[in-house]
């Protein structure tokens, strides 16, 4: 079976620190997960999340700071709003809302992050493929 396509969008601050620390201490991350970094989760818009699904993501996880830790103030709240909206759209499209999740971390929580990422990967794998096929697959059909 095709491996799931997982995308993590990671805030540069606490979550990125967790990722770095996880890497340094040999903690293994789900192999199907690709992570891209942004300065703040408030940086990304709904379009980017939707595009992830359009390009074939089976699950997207936003890794963000806790609300009260955001270096810039509103980042996580923007993240919540984006997730709520995109989830509604996903629901309309018949795509399981749980394919889009957000998790917040403090900088020292590398272990919890790794656990959360594995949980996420396992849940998505159990869900199977995203019914919205990426373009290249649609072309293949």
């Amino acid at each position: 079976m095709k491996r799931p396509n997982l995308l993590g969008i990671c805030c540069n601050w606490s979550p990125w620190t967790c990722l770095n620390a996880a890497g340094r201490t040999n903690l293994e991350l789900p192999p199907d997960l690709r992570i891209i970094r942004v300065m703040c989760i408030g940086r990304i818009n709904q379009a980017l999340i939707l595009k992830a699904f359009e390009y074939g993501a089976d699950g997207v996880i936003l890794l963000e700071c806790r609300d009260e830790d955001c270096r810039y103030g509103p980042g996580p709240e923007v993240g919540h709003a984006n997730v709520t909206l995109v989830r509604s759209l996903l629901d309309l499209l018949g795509i399981d809302q749980q394919r889009l999740v957000e998790r917040s971390f403090e900088a020292h929580e590398k272990d919890r992050m790794v656990t959360e990422l594995w949980n996420f990967a396992e849940r998505i794998e159990a869900m199977g493929a995203n019914p919205a096929k990426p373009r290249q697959e649609r072309e293949a059909v």
Binding site: L93, K133, R135
Partner: peptide
């Protein structure tokens, strides 16, 4: 993006 996603037959 969502409009293109609608082209998936299984949706």
């Amino acid at each position: 993006s969502w409009m293109r996603m609608m082209t998936s037959p299984e949706l």
